[in-house]
């Protein structure tokens, strides 16, 4: 029953909203805003001429690159900050100042430094993605329960083993939470970044569709696709939370 409701209720709500949208647009006289069917037609057009796949893969590639770079830097840095108080005390204030600056605010600087190629949006995603991961990872180290560290101390294992078998796996669930947040923010930012420059990506698709002839059907189509891919990315990260070695943390 619960599972049926979990699927049926949102589907029902979406149907109602679509119907309302359709009715409002059909009754109005403004010719610019598309009906749901026009959006579907527009999407089919994009699929047919092959541009949609190009835009999606361009956006995903940028998010992937920025996210990967951020992960490679944030996880070791967060672990180091979590373990060594002096490092935490030194770096944390800087990160706390940088963190509230919206990645969108970095756009002018990104373009100034890196031009209008792929590097600028990748940099923006990197900026957006790195801070949540650092914060989550460091916090994760701080919340490792004393009893586990003491047990490790009791068995007298090497530092490498302590790190590999206690510290890292103990923090992994938090790292995954950080990665999930970061990927979400990164996806948010790539679209914004692509609206400014470049010739590809879902953000570019939206702006270009408006500029080249007020194709609002394609604008809405781009928005819906962004939403669906965002959902998919989050779903992928949720799969990580199902790993057996991290499930202890979320089960509570």
């Amino acid at each position: 029953m619960h599972r049926v409701r979990k699927i049926l209720s949102p589907v029902a709500l979406i149907s109602v909203l679509l119907a309302a949208w359709w009715i409002v647009v059909a009754r109005g006289d403004g010719a610019i805003f598309p009906t749901p069917w026009q959006v579907v037609q527009g999407t089919r057009e994009l699929i047919a001429d092959g541009t949609l796949v190009g835009h999606i893969s361009a956006s995903l590639m940028r998010v992937g690159a920025g996210f990967l770079l951020a992960t490679l830097l944030a996880v070791p840095l967060g672990l180091w900050m979590g373990r060594v108080d002096a490092v935490y005390d030194t770096l944390n204030p800087i990160f706390q100042i940088l963190r509230p600056i919206s990645p969108i605010a970095w756009i002018p600087i990104a373009i100034l430094w890196l031009g209008v190629g792929n590097a600028a949006p990748i940099f923006l995603i990197f900026i957006a993605a790195i801070f949540p991961m650092i914060v989550q990872t460091a916090a994760g180290v701080h919340t490792i329960e004393q009893r586990y560290l003491q047990a490790a101390e009791n068995f007298g294992v090497s530092r490498a083993k302590l790190f590999r078998q206690v510290v890292f796996p103990a923090v992994l669930p938090q790292i995954i939470v950080g990665m999930r947040i970061s990927l979400g923010v990164g996806w948010l930012v790539v679209v914004a970044a692509e609206m400014i420059a470049l010739r590809s990506g879902l953000g570019y698709l939206i702006i270009d569709s408006r500029n080249a002839g007020n194709r609002y059907d394609l604008v809405v189509s781009g928005m819906v696709i962004i939403g669906l891919i965002g959902l998919l990315l989050d779903g992928l990260m949720r799969l990580l939370e199902g790993l057996k070695s991290v499930r202890w943390r979320y089960a509570r």
Binding site: R147, N154, A170
Partner: peptide, 20 residues
Amino acid sequence: KGPSAKGIVISQQGSVFPWL
């Protein structure tokens, strides 16, 4: 002078690593 594997503590709350 400090804990060692010569004497292992078993406590009420337990410390079996949940990730292993």
